[in-house]
């Protein structure tokens, strides 16, 4: 009962302030799921510019990146928001993994240190989000505890969630597995790199914001 009342008051407060402040949509997920590639796609579509650098090496985004005032349109609908691209959340970071990717030891250690701070910031920023788009690599196992912890924390905070199964253009992609793992959420399969099914994602974002 107390939990229900808390959620009710939170929702009233959120709706009250939502009208006054810019809606914040966060991109969350494990490293290398394609959060920044998706952020770049959204920014290219509506602002004509990129948001951040992408790389095959995990933890390329190590700081919170914000793009203010993005206006997306679909038919008569319009949605204005700030897009927050967050560092990938992980439970372990080993600088030696970066060495294997050809990064020099000093830079690898620096990258690992920055990546740990990035994870902490991502978790701290959860409370600031109005909507979260969880970006998962659809070629990977969705049952990882990081995914479950992120989505569980969003549910506990009563933050609306959209799950994106990215990289559907790849042969190993298995969107059904993500849908089975999180049956209570809408899952949209996209390729942020190739732009497949992006319109469906925008529609789902409109639906969540309403």
């Amino acid at each position: 009962m107390i939990k229900f009342m808390k959620k009710f008051v939170n929702r009233i407060f959120k709706n009250f302030f939502k009208k006054r402040k810019q809606l914040k949509i966060g991109l969350y997920g494990p490293p290398n799921g394609g959060k920044t590639t998706l952020a770049n796609k959204i920014c290219q579509d509506w602002l004509g510019e990129d948001m951040g650098l992408v790389s095959n090496v995990a933890h390329e985004t190590r700081e919170i990146q914000i793009k203010e005032q993005i206006n997306i349109k679909s038919g008569n609908k319009e949605l204005s928001f700030s897009l927050v691209d967050t560092p990938g959340i992980a439970t372990k970071i080993d600088y030696e993994d970066f060495l294997k990717k050809g990064i020099k030891e000093k830079d690898a250690k620096k990258r690992a240190k920055e990546a740990t701070r990035g994870v902490i910031d991502s978790i701290k920023w959860l409370d600031k989000m109005d909507i979260v788009v969880v970006v998962l690599d659809s070629t990977k196992d969705p049952y990882s505890q990081v995914n479950i912890t992120i989505i569980g924390n969003l549910a506990a905070r009563d933050i609306p969630v959209l799950i994106i199964g990215n990289k559907v253009d790849l042969k190993k992609s298995n969107l059904k597995k993500i849908k089975n793992a999180f049956p209570q959420y809408e899952v949209v399969g996209i390729s942020a790199k190739k732009g497949n099914n992006i319109d469906k994602m925008y529609e789902a974002m409109f639906a969540l914001a309403e």
């Binding site: 970071i93 740990t116 902490i120 978790i123 701290k124 912890t149 924390n153």
Partner: peptide, 10 residues
């Protein structure tokens, strides 16, 4: 669980 990840990172 989220706090455990945060403290681990620290």
């Amino acid at each position: 669980e989220a706090e455990l990840i945060k403290v681990t990172m620290e």
